[in-house]
Design a protein around this nucleic acid. Structure first.
Lengths: 339, 339
DNA sequence: CTTGGCACTCGCGGCGTACGAGTGCCAAGT
DNA sequence: ACTTGGCACTCGTACGCCGCGAGTGCCAAG
């Protein structure tokens, strides 16, 4: 049904349309790509491709453009990832290496990715739920106010202020610090509840009440409502392809402003080690039905830290985007794992 | 030269144009606002206003629209700040009170402001340079790696990892902690260099080298390169007024992606206690010449913490924007000062 | 199955026209 | 001296018409 030449025609259509943003006709296509057949033959193939739903006409007398399904086939079977140039690789490396802390790494990555792909880039901060506690610090701000600072192995730092009904002495705070520190150090987040389970029983009775409230806050911050964060950059790139967004880019911008949405985008990944591509209508997010999203996980083992990716028009250079996303994910993963 | 009625006409033009986004003609203006004069008289006044440069024609047979200069006059002399409704005030309060930490406060404020004004909102994190140190924590990650965590009175937390050539014992770290803690606690940022000046001399010789490098990092982080941050929200609102941006909103989005630009916007304030309005060409930022910016400082004493504001089309409801910006600044200032 | 030929479709750009909102000016009125 | 109604004029917009040409679909011959 779809012989090799038809696939070749589809590839040509996608490539031409991506680069020119104009419906491509049989004649110009036969000329530009040396397919060795006449426009008439190309027309026949096009008709077949249209029957199968891979391409469509905007109107009767116009050329063809790929459908979401056409892009899907293209991405899955017709395109090979474009590796980055040496210069690009070096640029990534030197740019990321200058980062001084996690915030800096994330912000640099997201800008970098936006620049490389000329699209909107999204980078998730290392997920709390998949990190391990490196240190829990309890700061005695005032007699009845504590500041809890949790430092994760990924470099993330979470803080929370805690008001207590009664004042505490410095020694009591030291006891608290010791009790938590010993149990939490190195604990993966999933193990935190277990690590703390026996704590109230083991502690000196005097500090038990305050210990319990600290424990509650710790569990809340880290386990019950772990705060996921994302950074975004390159929204100005959306205006380059203003033509691609049928009803203005309003809904796209709106969707991108919602942290929840971004997290959903990045999180909807079965296998975090491979690059995922969602094309047009495949997106579960309403406002992004006219865009494509390329995502991948990053982190030491099979992308466990978090995700990152780009959002752009369905008419995007998938090969390049996939390459850039994968490369940046690799560098960021290595950088954070080594930190 | 500009009698009261002419001013009244200008006000009417601004108000009509702001609400309809269409050039306003003498007739409809005379009808809608009960000026008690005929369209012909209004025309005469309009001609005078145009001579003075307060309004202009897009083309010969169109109505008038205000110029930047016209808006300026309107803002300075013809409009009074619109106070928020009780419901709005309550909404602000309850919305902000739910915040758990500084990040949360800032993120909530910026979203709130974007929603209230239906424009792009920008909120600066409390400036490091105007805060005081509440606590400096030194965490002993590994023998030769320290994590410095600085907690400011505004709730800001800065972290920096420090690699040392040689390993340290826990006691040595404790000594460091003590040396810095005593001197820095409560120090305003400008006083930090002075507070630390005698430190190398006073310390036990054994830890002097490491103490010096820690000191360098502290000074770097807090004094030499204090990191200013801003949050932004509501960019999707720009698309509502797409018509207002002559050559698409590309340059606006680009400008808003630059932290440096945003800081410049917010920072260019002589007197942080009053609301500042920059209209169109008055903006020093190239990309924002077609927008207006409304900013104010926030914080306990005369807005010393930082700034916040909104960015929108010159055709904006200044009275409402100024009111919202001021109100949010007040609430945020109170909230952070009390925290 | 491929190819050249051919009639057909239809979006787009250019052009001319009618419309109407809005202006500027002037002469008369208060 | 200011206000007002009248009036001619401007000019941008909407609309309809037309011709061009890219592109298609079909068919019959190779």
């Amino acid at each position: 049904m779809l012989d090799d030449r038809k696939l070749e025609v589809l590839r040509a259509i996608v490539e031409d349309f991506v680069s020119t943003n104009e419906p491509v006709g049989s004649k110009s296509l036969a000329e530009r790509h040396s397919l060795g057949v006449s426009p008439a033959t190309v027309r026949n193939d096009m008709a077949a491709l249209e029957d199968e739903g891979f391409i469509t006409h905007p109107h009767t007398s116009a050329g063809r453009i790929p459908t979401d399904k056409g892009y899907r086939l293209f991405v899955d079977r017709l395109s090979s990832v474009k590796p980055l140039s040496g210069a690009e690789k070096r640029a990534i490396q030197t740019f990321l290496e200058g980062a001084v802390d996690l915030d800096d790494v994330v912000r640099r990555s997201v800008r970098l990715l936006a620049q490389l792909t000329r699209q909107v880039a999204v980078v998730q901060y290392p997920s709390l739920s998949r990190s391990a506690v490196r240190h829990l610090e309890i700061v005695h701000l005032e007699p009845n106010r504590l500041l809890l600072v949790t430092i994760m192995d990924t470099g993330r730092v979470e803080q929370r202020v805690l008001e207590l009904p009664a004042g505490l002495s410095d020694e009591e705070v030291a006891q608290l610090r010791q009790a938590f520190g010993a149990r939490l150090h190195g604990a993966r987040l999933v193990d935190v509840p277990a690590a703390l389970a026996d704590l109230p029983g083991a502690a000196p009775p005097a500090i038990r009440p305050v210990l319990t409230s600290v424990m509650t806050v710790v569990l809340e911050t880290l386990v019950d409502q772990p705060e996921e964060r994302v950074a975004i950059a390159g929204t100005a790139n959306l205006t380059r392809s203003a033509l691609d967004f049928p009803h203005t880019l309003r809904p796209v911008l709106e969707a991108l402003e919602e942290q929840v949405v971004l997290l959903k985008l990045i999180g909807e990944v079965n296998d975090p080690t491979t690059v995922h591509v969602k094309i047009g209508e495949e997106n579960s997010v309403e406002g992004l039905r006219s865009t494509s999203v390329v995502t991948v996980g990053y982190g030491p083992d099979s992308g466990t830290y978090g995700g990152l990716g780009v959002v752009g028009p369905t008419r995007m250079d998938y090969a390049a985007s996939i390459g850039s996303v994968r490369a940046v994910a690799r560098y960021v993963g290595d950088l954070l794992a080594g930190a």
